[in-house]
Amino acid sequence: MSDINKGDSILEIRGLAVEVQGKRILEGLDLTVRAGEVHAIMGPNGAGKSTLSQVLAGRPDYDVKAGTVRYLGEDLLALAAEERARRGLFLGFQYPVEIPGVNNVYLLKAALNARRRQLGQPEVDAFEFLGLVRDKMRLMQMDESFLSRGVNEGFSGGEKKRNEILQMTVLEPILAILDETDSGLDIDALKVVAHGVNSLKRDDRAIVLVTHYQRLLDHIVPDHVHVLAGGRILKSGDASLALELERRGYDWVRAEAAAA
């Protein structure tokens, strides 16, 4: 896919401070993500998890007040949202938007072709594309009716999340940020989603799971787990940290950080 090798730096966040509607949400956040890694960012409600996801994807109304973000060596914050997407950054939305009248499958084709143009690859034609998307839909256990519906129109919560992962598997991003992809899923849907994510694990790709609960991590095992609270990463560890958080909650991490 690319000349990215396992261990190469994909994302480097240093001292990131972000305000949303005048309120400081992130405050001096540092994070490094390398190719081949799966990261989980966990934290209590209101910690800034979704803000981090959205700001990395380029949401225009979020105000970056300080810090730097480098993506594949480039200044990510200087790029518009659509340029980030074309360079292989994918955000799986916590609340995927319903867009009635915009056909789901054509959006996906337009998105894929935007990415391919960026890579200097020829655009896929309708026939080739349908073959590709049908395979991925089988993987996500989605029936063909999803092809002709409006983007997320009338989808259940679980269907919307599947659709996000379907888009991800088609777009084959370099960095996938999945914002609360597990919320609102029953156990069967969770397994399907996890299977889709696992199918994308590769040495030249990184995945960042943003989640409130540990249960997704039973199915997608992270290499690194971070606790985000009060706008910063307070603690990092391996997969065992997620289990400890599940058992002990977040307060002890805050206490530890305050004492340090």
């Binding site: 994807a57 380029g58 949401r59 225009p60 518009a80 949202a81 659509e82 980030r84 997407a85 074309r86 955000l91 939305f93 995927p96 938007v97 867009i99 915009v102 959006l107 996906l108 337009a110 998105a111 935007a114 990415r115 960026q118 983007v151 888009q167 777009l171």
Partner: peptide
């Protein structure tokens, strides 16, 4: 934002 985040101009 959703469409931009999928790479559409």
């Amino acid at each position: 934002f959703y469409l931009l985040a999928r790479g559409l101009d």
